[in-house]
Design a protein around this nucleic acid. Structure first.
Length: 383
RNA sequence: GGUGGAGUUGAGCAGUGGCCGCUCCGGAGACUGUAAAUCUCCCGUCUUACGACACCGUUGGUUCGAAUCCAACCUCCACCA
């Protein structure tokens, strides 16, 4: 059986990698950004929009979809792909992050996590058996193991416990996926490395999980409020200990420049709500930093969001900043759609540029220049 | 002409003697494995505001103290003549 992940090229000046990941619903060229569609929709976009901007894979969420409409119903209706009308690959998050984000509504136990539904307070339990069953029902192409994502900052003891628990759960998830034939049918299961700010725990977690031979590995426990240098340090403390022939995925990150920095650290996959969420609040990305379209200065600005480069080739590019500002300020639904279209397009274009430069062999100089321009522009706007 | 009602710093309102708001509109910021088309701050003036000084139709009065009580007047609305 051919490997599901091909490492096509590794950059010499950085640890950046150009790869190709095969799933049941198609091939993914890496590095790649994955738009987040928690509830079976990338908010405000149709699947056609996603295809138009070149999305290769999107996310769904175990916790949310099992709460509503339930994974059983989705299975009965043909699986998540058919249910939401998206025939490309889908990665489903396990609900592990909700252990962190819904902290007030949960109780962590050795066999899993007891939640109270954020919708109606109903009791819900997620353990290895539950999350794998749910992700099988959804028909996920890439299922994530359930993990415990400790907060930042975190005491070493608590972190070590989270790492140990996550390791145990990961092994159980893989066993379940093996026994059920989920893995044999071409679905993938990715493990998640925790360890917070403790390099030795990160390494230990990465190496022990690597020994379990998962189809892919995620860096978890980032994007939980830590400053950027800390976040990059944690990613850098993890990737060297992950197998080179498997895809690496940092969960929940990041800003455009953070993505490029992490690609340079050897990360292949990203997901983040940032571009879609800020779009709904009127913030759009450009190669010269973000623009807050609600700002009065855009009231008469006839230019498109970006005139050339990343984000300039999508449908939203035909509209002026003035029009987009008007829609945003007026609270019109179309503002969400167009700004989301733009931001995701920008992120996907950025990853396409990264792939091209890794192939061309100049990723190191290109990404430094790109970040320089972006951060200079962002700083100038704040001044 | 009479009777009644109303006038609160952009709009709409609350405010029966000291503490004084609320919702829009307007301005800015935040947002990182989505409880988020959300949240926070500002929105009379004083370059900055710990602060100072205003303002409740007008003018006067009562009072230690008035948007609030009293008097006269102005404007608007409704009804009656």
């Amino acid at each position: 059986m051919p490997a599901h992940f091909q490492l096509l090229k590794t950059d010499t000046a950085t640890a950046a990698r150009r790869g190709r990941l095969t799933t049941r619903h198609g091939v993914i060229e890496t590095p790649i950004f994955m738009p987040v569609g928690t509830q079976g929709t990338v908010k405000s976009l149709t699947p056609q929009h996603l295809r138009d901007i070149g999305a290769q894979i999107i996310l769904g969420n175990t916790y949310h979809l099992n709460l509503r409409p339930t994974s059983e119903l989705i299975r009965e209706l043909g699986g998540l792909h058919q249910f939401m009308g998206w025939d490309g690959p889908i990665l489903t998050d396990s609900g592990g992050f909700q252990v962190f984000s819904l902290a007030k509504l949960r109780d962590i136990r050795d066999d899993g996590v007891a939640f109270q539904s954020h919708l109606d307070g109903a009791k819900l339990f997620l353990g290895p058996k539950e999350v794998m069953g749910i992700q099988q029902n959804l028909g996920s192409d890439i299922a994530m193991v359930i993990d415990e994502c400790p907060p930042w900052p975190c005491e070493r003891d608590a972190c070590a416990k989270a790492v140990a628990r996550s390791y145990k759960w990961a092994g159980q998830c893989k066993q379940i996926a093996t026994d059920s034939g989920f893995l044999a049918n071409g679905h993938h299961v990715f493990a998640i490395v925790q360890g917070s700010t403790f390099d030795d725990l990160r390494r230990e977690a990465a190496e022990s999980l690597a020994a379990l031979d998962f189809p892919g590995y995620a860096v978890g426990g980032v994007s939980v409020g830590e400053p950027e240098p800390e976040m990059l340090k944690q990613v850098g403390a993890t990737t060297p200990f992950l197998p080179a022939d498997k895809p690496r995925y940092t969960m929940g990150l990041g800003t455009p420049s953070q993505l490029l920095k992490m690609v340079a650290l050897g990360v292949d996959m990203f997901d983040c709500v940032l571009p879609s969420r800020v779009a709904r609040n009127g913030l759009v990305f450009t190669p010269d930093g973000p623009l807050n379209l609600r700002n009065e200065k855009f009231r008469t600005d006839a230019k498109p969001i970006v005139e050339s480069g990343e984000g300039s080739g999508n449908y939203a590019a035909r509209f002026s900043r003035a029009y987009l500002r008007h829609l945003t300020v007026a609270g019109e639904i179309l503002a969400c759609t167009l700004c989301t279209l733009h931001n995701l397009s920008f992120y996907l274009d950025l990853m396409a540029s990264a792939r091209a430069h890794i192939e061309a062999g100049d990723y190191g100089t290109w990404h430094r220049a790109w970040i320089e321009r972006y951060e200079t522009g962002a700083a100038a706007r704040l001044a």
